[in-house]
Structure formats: structure tokens, C-alpha cells
Amino acid sequence: MAQFGVHALVFTSDWNAASAKAACQTAREIGYDLIEVLIFDPATLDVAATARAAREAGIGLRLGMALSAGSDISSIDPVEAARGEATVARCLEIASELSTPAVSGITYAAFNSYAAAPTAAQRAQVAEALARLDTRAGQLGVKLGLEPVNRYESYLVNTLDQGAELIRMSEARNLFLHMDTFHMNIEEADIAATIQRNAALLGYAHLADNHRGLLGTGAFDVKGFFRALCAVGYSGDYTVESFSPVALSPDLAGGLRLWRQAWQEPAHAARVALEAMQRGLSEARAAVTPW
């Protein structure tokens, strides 16, 4: 049964015991089933406080991550590549410690603006690392997701097809594709078609409008996205990403290129998004017969 989640960055980028408690409680009061926590650095995440905040609020947890330029699995520098693989491995361990089903995000390269395309050797290197991480995920009883992101935020995996090919290269059993409509809206030629082609590997979805502001107020076809997923029998979770500088640190707002105040009140943005997701999924289920 699909569950609805909200990204913690809707509320705050300063994840500590107090902010985690407040965000989890607010998300649950609004009606969310899940809250996704972004692991900036696995060494600094307060795992115990995160678990306590979610437990006390009665809300489920999902985990996201993004490798940095200094911890890049695709790097030609073996030290950086090894550091990246170790970072993903630690995030998998945190997922197990928090009893969450998976960790996903930019797990195959860095959140970075690259000046050249990856080489065949780099692709093979990443596939080999993912194969090892797939084994580790299986040992821990969790899964690892690859989130294709747009060309300005990473390389190697910008589309679902590219992500699927990397999973096939790694011969993985515990890897899945993590969809994000903001990036898909930029990179995919036909969203419904790529969903159908890659249906067997789809495991998680980020819902964001084309402007990453209030969900349902932009140009992205939210209803069409739900219809496409219902048509292939997708039963995974949906988490909204709706960002505004008002809730984020200046560094993170700059990194995400959030130059405009998309909204002023996090709770309002979260409510608007939940209503849009509930309405979109309900209407899609009524209109579509899965093949």
C-alpha cells in the first residue's frame, strides 16, 4: 500500500534533536505517513535522536543521501572513490539501524557540476562498486536506490534508462530506481514511456513540480505521473519535495539554486502537497486499469 511522505527539507536543513522532533510531529499532524531525512554526512547524523523523534511522533522514516565531490564513487582518484563507497555503505548501515527499508539518492557519483561526460571505465568502476554495495545491502536486509538527477546536478545517471542499465551492469538484487519528477521533467523525453520500460525496477518516488515550489501549482503534469504509475501497478511510496529558502541554510539554498521565496510557511506547503498527492493518486486509481 502506497504511503505519502514529506522531505525533511520542507521544514528545516538543520537536523538536530529539537528540529527533528518538531518536523516529525508537524508532518504527522498534517497527515503524512513518512518523513524523509537527508544524510548530509553519516558521521554527523544523530541516529538516536532521529529514531526517537520518529517514534514519538508515530511516523515512518525514509532516508536520502547525496555523495559529495570528495566522496565520489565515479572518481578516477582511487582514494575518493573508496571514500564514496564507504559513505554509501555507512548509510546502508544507518538504514538498518533505523529499521528503514532503504537509502536512496545520488549514490553513484557526486552532487556536482561535471565538465565532461563519464568514461566507459568510470561506468564499469561504479558498476563494480554498486555490486559490492548490493551485497552489503542484502546482508543488512535493506535496499539501495539510484536517483537519476538532471545534468546540472550530476552525471552518469540522468534518466531512468541510464539507472536501469547501471543496475543491470552490477547484476544487483537489492538496487532500485528512485524517481524524481523535478529531474524527470528536465531529462526524460516521455515520462510515461520510461516508467513503463523500467516498471520492474521502480521503488520510490519524489514528487516535485517543475519550479520545486508548491506542488500542483506549476507546469508538471502531476496527475499524468500518477496515471502512468498506476498503469504499471506501482505500489511504492511517494514523498514530496517542495523547497523554499525560508526553511534552508543559505549554503543549501544556494546549492539548490533557490533564488526566489517559493512559499513562506512550511506547514502550508506540506498541506498543499499532501492534498495534491492524495487527489492525484485517487483520481488515477479510478481512471486506470493496471496492465
Results as ranks from 00 to 15, higher is better:
Met1Cys: 04
Gln3Glu: 13
Leu9His: 15
Leu9Met: 10
Thr12Ser: 07
Ser13Ile: 03
Ser13Lys: 08
Ser13Asp: 10
Asn16Ser: 06
Ala20Asn: 07
Ala22Trp: 10
Cys24Leu: 02
Ala27Asn: 01
Gly31Pro: 02
Tyr32Phe: 15
Ile35Asp: 01
Thr44Asn: 12
Asp46Arg: 03
Ala54Asp: 02
Arg55Tyr: 03
Glu56Phe: 00
Gly60Cys: 03
Leu61Phe: 01
Leu63Tyr: 07
Leu63Glu: 13
Leu67Asp: 04
Asp72Trp: 01
Asp72His: 05
Ser75Ala: 13
Val79Pro: 15
Glu80Asn: 12
Ala81His: 14
Ala89Met: 08
Cys91Ile: 11
Ala95Ser: 14
Ser99Gly: 03
Thr100Asp: 09
Ala102Arg: 12
Ala102Gln: 12
Ser104His: 11
Gly105Asn: 12
Gly105Ser: 08
Thr107Trp: 04
Ala109Gly: 13
Asn112Ser: 12
Asn112Tyr: 13
Ala115Tyr: 14
Ala115Thr: 14
Ala116Leu: 06
Thr119Gln: 05
Ala121His: 10
Gln125Met: 09
Ala127Trp: 00
Ala129Thr: 02
Ala131Trp: 00
Leu133Cys: 06
Gln139Val: 04
Gln139Lys: 02
Gly141Tyr: 01
Leu144Asp: 14
Gly145Val: 03
Val149Ala: 01
Asn150Thr: 06
Asn150Ala: 10
Ser154Val: 05
Tyr155Lys: 07
Leu156Asn: 04
Val157Trp: 07
Val157Thr: 13
Asn158Cys: 12
Thr159Gly: 10
Thr159His: 07
Thr159Tyr: 06
Leu160Lys: 00
Leu160Asn: 04
Asp161Leu: 03
Ala164Gln: 08
Ala164Lys: 05
Ala164Asp: 14
Glu165Phe: 13
Ile167Ser: 11
Arg168Thr: 15
Phe176His: 11
Asp180Gly: 11
Asn185Met: 01
Glu188Leu: 01
Thr194Tyr: 00
Ile195Ala: 00
Arg197Thr: 10
Tyr204His: 09
Tyr204Glu: 00
His206Phe: 02
His206Ala: 06
Gly213Gln: 12
Ala219Asn: 07
Gly224Ala: 09
Arg227Tyr: 02
Cys230Val: 10
Gly233Cys: 05
Tyr234Ser: 08
Gly236Thr: 03
Asp237Gly: 03
Val240Lys: 04
Glu241Asp: 13
Ala247Asp: 09
Gly255Phe: 05
Trp259Asn: 09
Trp259Ser: 08
Glu265Asn: 15
Pro266Leu: 15
Ala267Glu: 08
His268Gly: 10
His268Trp: 15
Ala273Cys: 06
Leu274Met: 10
Leu274Arg: 08
Glu275Tyr: 08
Gln278Cys: 15
Arg279Pro: 03
Gly280Ser: 12
Leu281Met: 13
Ser282Val: 07
Ala286Cys: 06
Val288Tyr: 06
